[in-house]
Design a protein around this nucleic acid. Structure first.
Lengths: 177, 177
DNA sequence: AAAATTTATATCAAACCGATATATATCTTG
DNA sequence: CAAGATATATATCGGTTTGATATAAATTTT
């Protein structure tokens, strides 16, 4: 599931520019389970255009770089279909937060507490954003959205429930030394 | 938090070879929140050795490639300390599974059901593995481990609770058309 | 009026991923 | 017991991705 397929997915829901595609990975409906930046989106769109999977119209705007609007083509629809009907690769998670906490013995307890507080704020904000999507949507999309909500809620609950337990244990250890 | 830092983290807990480092990302205590393969570990160890952050002893084994055992050096310990006391980057998640489900309209309901069933099996297996770590460990490590357990349990529960709801909605839609 | 943010595309070095190559030991199964 | 599969062990390489940087103007905020 490379960035080319991700772009086809976005474009299957309506034509847009590279900039707008990136926004959908930052804020939009894909933001909680996929990532993609300019550095991978623009090359992907170039290759998709060359391969005839998408078409590109240039809206020449006066006094601004031309806006290139991409639309999915039949060949692109087929590629997307094949991809979503294939075998999914394993989820890939890389969490700096968990890595840092794992080595919590190297961090001052007050800093750990601060780290967790910030992480709680991040999950709360994401949760608020996901829950504010009141729009009517197909069952599949709603399922994925609510999956995201459930995961962020679980993270939030765990952090809130175990935060003081961890800090307490770390402080006690410091006293013992 | 690049692969060099990840390797330092593993080596801070005891010296080992590149192969053994990779195993720790596959099965071991890092597997549920970080990834790294040979293609990034070996170059990282090379750079770490060149920079004096780790040292390397070659155990020449007869009739097998020499086993290179790496150990963290003082300079490496300092780098790890700096990294875990810095600002954490945002979690990076890429989920083929959720991407495919998002486009569930392109998949036969029976296949979606199968997809979810397999995903439930994966979460169950991961959960069993994480929960079987009965060893005594520092509070920080236990916190991270239990965080992983909580997340996989939440995923499992969501999938089990909403699976039939989704399939039902998709089948009803097919009938309507 | 100045500063910051948003719209918009593009490139580039460095890092990373996945596949492949090589070689032997050990474990499993017919 | 022999064949096949899996585990041990390192390494490379092409292609992809990341993160930073460059450019430029309109719009919004201070």
């Amino acid at each position: 599931m490379d960035v080319k397929i991700l772009c086809l997915g976005v474009l299957s829901r309506g034509e847009c520019s590279g900039y707008e595609i990136r926004k959908q990975f930052e804020d939009g409906p894909f933001s909680h389970f996929q990532e993609a930046g300019f550095g991978s989106i623009y090359p992907a769109l170039k290759k998709l255009t060359e391969g005839g999977l998408v078409t590109c119209r240039e809206h020449s705007q006066d006094s601004r770089p031309d806006k290139k609007v991409y639309a999915i083509a039949a060949k692109g629809r087929q590629s997307l279909f094949d991809a979503v009907n294939g075998e999914p690769g394993a989820d890939k998670l890389r969490s700096d937060f968990m890595f840092m906490l794992f080595f919590g013995d190297l961090i001052a307890p007050a800093d750990i507490d601060h780290l967790i507080a910030k992480r709680i704020a991040i999950h709360s904000a994401t949760l608020a954003r996901l829950e504010s999507c009141g729009a009517v949507m197909p069952p599949s999309e709603r399922f994925v959205l609510k999956f995201g909500v459930a995961m962020h809620r679980a993270a939030l609950r765990y952090l809130e429930d175990h935060r003081h337990e961890l800090i307490g244990a770390l402080l006690q250890k410091d006293v013992a030394e």
